Simulated scan of single mutants.
Amino acid sequence: MWKHIAANALTLGIVVIVCLAGLVQLGKSRWAEPGPLAEAAFFEVPRGANLDRVSVALARDGIVSSDSIFRIGTKYAERDRDLKFGTYEIPAGASMPEVLDIITAGGPSVFPYTVTYLLRARGPEVRVRERVPGQDAPVEVATFAPGVDATPEAYTDLVARGVPITWRVSVAPGLTSWEVVEGLKGADFLEGVDGLVVPPEGSLAPDTYDVARGSDAGDLLQRMRVAQERILAEAWAARVPGLPLETPQEALTLASIIEKETGVAEERRLVSAVFVNRLNQGMRLQTDPTVIYGITNGQGGLGRGLRRSELDRTTPYNTYRIDGLPPGPIANPSAAAIRAAMDPEETDFIFFVADGTGGHAFAETLAEHNRNVAAWRAIEAARQSTSGN
């Protein structure tokens, strides 16, 4: 009898082992197979959430086929403590290992909506975009100029509902510090805008900055200053030898002039070369943007062409009348303009003028420059004749 009982027990044990092996194999198969998500979707890992809570939410949202298999697989991989707070985009059909990789990677949250506050010379603009899961290009929700256009209902509704939003401030290159501060005053999602002090000219790095709603505008300006200090220090350390620049501040001043003279990326080092060659030869820079800055003190654009009397008037910024660089920057230059100031193109150009395409024609001699000027004036005359008709 005991032999019979032992045989039955052995048989039962084998059956149990076979069943467990089958369950393990099934679990492994479901762990690695494509998930049930039919379309890409956003998923939020709440702050402080544990694996049990996240697993249940993933199964509830149809991202994984089984919360228990996801939980067991995550523990087996020893990654149950690696969950990172944030909002993530999960692609359609993502397997459990792929989902786990995404929600443990961390990094910036991918919110469905992005509000970008653009600071431009003609005034700020707000762009509201929706990111549709699975699509590369965001969808435009609203665009408006605060203080000029009526605030769209789509924007106010998103804010009122507390929808997760990525807030950004984008600063265009070439703005003066006054223009940056004035522009920030219209940002209704920032605090402390009324008490802002205008930072030194040139000290703000044009870039796009992620911010939190309700954060302090002064802190944002400080981030811009720290970024510009780093950019300037790195470029100064890597500058080419023989430049007629004695300090990083002089380099920043030259970079600001380059920034205002051209918006064509391929031209920056050529424009830099013209000014460096002029400084080396003792020629005056003769650049209109510095004259304009001397008139406006950086508080907005001139809104008209320069008058002969203004070009003839001696001011610290009139580079038609003074030698060398003006006393300081005339705008906040981009990193590209700063690098161009310290690494000009190797060329003998000492003149340039607009060529009608948005760029410039460069010349080594006055005779060649005069021909380029004549060509530009002919283009201007033709445009005026056309517009007059």
Rank of each mutant, 00 (worst) to 15 (best):
Glu234Cys: 10
Glu191Met: 07
Pro248Glu: 03
Ala378Phe: 01
Gly195Asp: 10
Ala337Trp: 10
Ser385Ile: 01
Ile330Cys: 01
Asp343Met: 12
Gly22Tyr: 06
Ala265Gly: 10
Gln222Pro: 08
Ala94Cys: 11
Leu10Lys: 09
Tyr320Gln: 02
Ala187Arg: 00
Asp67Leu: 10
Gly93Pro: 14
Arg127Met: 15
Tyr113Pro: 03
Thr290Arg: 05
Leu243His: 06
Gly106Asn: 12
Pro164Arg: 05
Asp136Thr: 15
Thr315His: 09
Ser95Tyr: 15
Ser177Glu: 09
Gly294Trp: 10
Gly62Ala: 02
Thr290Trp: 06
Ile165Gly: 02
Glu368Asn: 09
Ala361Cys: 08
Leu366Thr: 11
Arg313Ala: 10
Tyr76Arg: 15
Arg81Gln: 12
Ile90Ala: 00
Thr253Gln: 04
Val193Phe: 11
Pro46Ala: 01
Val110Gly: 02
Glu246Ala: 05
Pro108Asn: 04
Ile165Asp: 04
Pro206Lys: 06
Leu118Glu: 13
Thr143Gln: 09
Ser95Cys: 15
Ala145Thr: 14
Asp136Phe: 14
Arg47His: 11
Arg225Leu: 11
Thr296Asn: 06
Tyr88Leu: 09
Asn389Leu: 11
Tyr88Asn: 13
Leu20Asp: 14
Arg129His: 15
Glu89Pro: 10
Arg308Ile: 12
Glu261Pro: 08
Gly358Ser: 12
Ile63Met: 00
Ala238Arg: 15
Leu245Asn: 00
Leu366Gly: 06
Pro241Gln: 11
Val181Arg: 12
Tyr113Phe: 12
Val353Ile: 11
Met342Thr: 15
Ile102Thr: 05
Phe275Trp: 02
Glu89Thr: 11
Ile379Trp: 01
Ile17Thr: 12
Gly62Ile: 05
Ile14Tyr: 08
Ala94Arg: 00
Leu51Cys: 04
Gly123Ile: 10
Val169Ala: 01
Ala49Glu: 08
Ser203Trp: 07
Ala41Ser: 14
Arg79Met: 03
Arg71Phe: 07
Ile258Trp: 02
Ser55Glu: 07
Met283Arg: 04
Arg81Val: 13
Gly359Pro: 05
Gly388Trp: 04
Pro244His: 12
Asn318Pro: 08
Val54Ile: 14
Val110Tyr: 01
Phe42Asn: 02
Val15His: 13
Ala160Thr: 13
Gly35Met: 07
Arg161Asn: 13
Ser309Pro: 03
Ser68Arg: 15
Trp376Lys: 06
Pro327Gly: 03
Gly324Leu: 07
Gly13Thr: 08
Met283Lys: 00
Thr11Pro: 02
Phe275Cys: 07
Thr287Ile: 10
Thr87Pro: 06
Leu58Tyr: 09
Ser68Met: 14
Ala336Asn: 07
Ala337Leu: 09
Cys19Arg: 11
Leu221Val: 06
Lys75Ile: 13
Ala381Asn: 00
Arg53Asp: 04
Glu364Leu: 02
Gly27Pro: 02
Glu345Pro: 09
Ala217Phe: 13
Pro329Arg: 06
